[in-house]
Design a protein around this nucleic acid. Structure first.
Lengths: 257, 257
DNA sequence: TTGCGACTCCTTACAGCGTAAAGTAACCTT
DNA sequence: AAGGTTACTTTACGCTGTAAGGAGTCGCAA
């Protein structure tokens, strides 16, 4: 199940995201935790266990019970929002345009790609409605800043920003989830693929005739890096050539009216 | 949480996907259900309640308990695989090339886009490892058949197929999940956005100065269809202009070596 | 005809989840 | 010192997927 963003109290969520809380002197025992500590711990747990991490697990990592977290954070959904935005702080806020926009967009995409593979759970936070946190803004701002330099109008920019974003996210999802599934079952990509394709060919012997174009699609394959596992190699290759096509398309839009 | 595909017994899964079961005469009571009936019911439930549907809900729709389903299907993961592939049977297996590949790809993308908005839960099935069902194959085969006509080599085709696929999926995710979130909270997009942007501007008054490029990105906006809600309109516009860029990129690859 | 074995479907049960509610102990203000 | 506020715990509820075992139904061989 995907976790949907922004379902709680808007004011509370946004105040947390922008850390707009005033640290006044108050009665009662000193807080032993903090929102930041909780978010950091939750990110660590999610990096290890995926998005199916539990509030109990986060609490345990901090030496508390699950319920202790609810003093700082309204619920798991809001915590995920905070994790999402905080993790994005890892990404650069701007990219130099010295080598032109094309190179800058490539860097942006590459950084985001690597970021997703460090934090695969990010890919399971719904993208529908933005979290509206400062770092999410900064990441899009960085891409927008590059693309604005092409002089394209807002209407086209929005489509391009979306396309680049979707592309990186999608491509990252492919490797990230392949890796996650591999880890979960303990079998690497090769074994997974081998076991299934063997059964598949046995049950449906004339696969190649039923889907001849898929066969064409599989042709002309050569490993980019023999160190990497099967599907991952595939994904890297597809990422490169797909991004190239995308950039060519932008270039076309820049050249023509 | 995203549902990962293909974690169970490979043979059992693939036999179910390709309906390779022999309906022999067997002892015991006549089956009151069938895999198809269960998959259909599950799709109906998922269309209504999203990917967080429960086995109990599916059983109830069929007048059975949850455990009755386990006679036909090994578990929820495998059921999701079957739902995924069966739903894809709705999509055309081929597209005419009479108006050229560009028009055909546009149709393919549009159909898939509409398909995802009919079955938003599809977007939450992991894409990492293909489900390897006949209809999933058919959908990719249809796109591949169009693109093979451009004469591009396999290496480039893979990147393009990936990019188009990711793009449609990503764009669809944006609307689908926006709609889902809206339904869940009962508030439409406008109210959602209004409530949050107001609080945001109150807490962070100089947003425009902190993220000037986002402001550029928001310029030049005009509603495509005033009937549609805010975010959805946005998504449709982005889909069109993003797809155009993508197609231009492919055209570039076709023209140049 | 009878009994066996395979089969469908049910009930019960368990461990895990997010979190509501209530209780306890710590601390500041008056 | 009293009272109010807060941090955190314990307990509990309803939900989830599914393991285990039992009840009833049917085909077939003896």
């Amino acid at each position: 199940m995907v976790v949907y963003a922004g379902q709680g109290d808007p004011r509370r969520s946004i105040e947390l995201l922008w850390r707009a809380s005033v640290a006044e002197q108050r009665p009662g025992p000193k807080p032993g935790l903090s929102v930041d500590a909780i978010v950091d711990a939750a990110i660590e747990v999610a990096d290890e266990q995926g998005m199916a991490f539990s509030m109990r697990a986060v609490g345990e990592r901090l030496g508390r019970t699950a319920m202790a977290l609810y003093t700082y954070v309204p619920g798991k959904n809001e915590l995920v929002d905070l994790m999402y935005d905080r993790a994005m702080a890892e990404l650069p806020a701007s990219y130099p345009l010295d080598d032109g926009w094309r190179s800058a967009v490539t860097c942006w995409a590459h950084d985001l790609w690597e970021f997703y593979s460090r934090h695969p759970w990010m890919l399971q936070v719904s993208q529908a409605r933005p979290v509206l946190g400062p770092h999410e803004f900064a990441v899009i701002e960085a891409l927008a800043a590059i693309l604005v330099s092409t002089g394209l109008p807002g209407r086209e920019l929005r489509g391009i920003v979306g396309a680049v974003n979707y592309f990186v996210r999608g491509a990252a999802q492919t490797v990230a989830e392949a890796r996650a599934a591999g880890n979960a079952t303990g079998e690497g990509d090769e074994e997974w693929w081998y076991a299934r394709s063997a059964v598949l060919l046995e049950i449906e012997p004339d696969l190649e005739h039923r889907f001849p174009m898929l066969h064409v699609l599989e042709s002309d394959r050569e490993p980019v890096d023999p160190e990497l596992p099967y599907l991952e190699n595939d994904a890297v290759e597809n990422f490169r050539s797909g991004l190239k096509v995308l950039l060519d398309g932008i270039e076309g839009a820049v050249a023509k009216p």
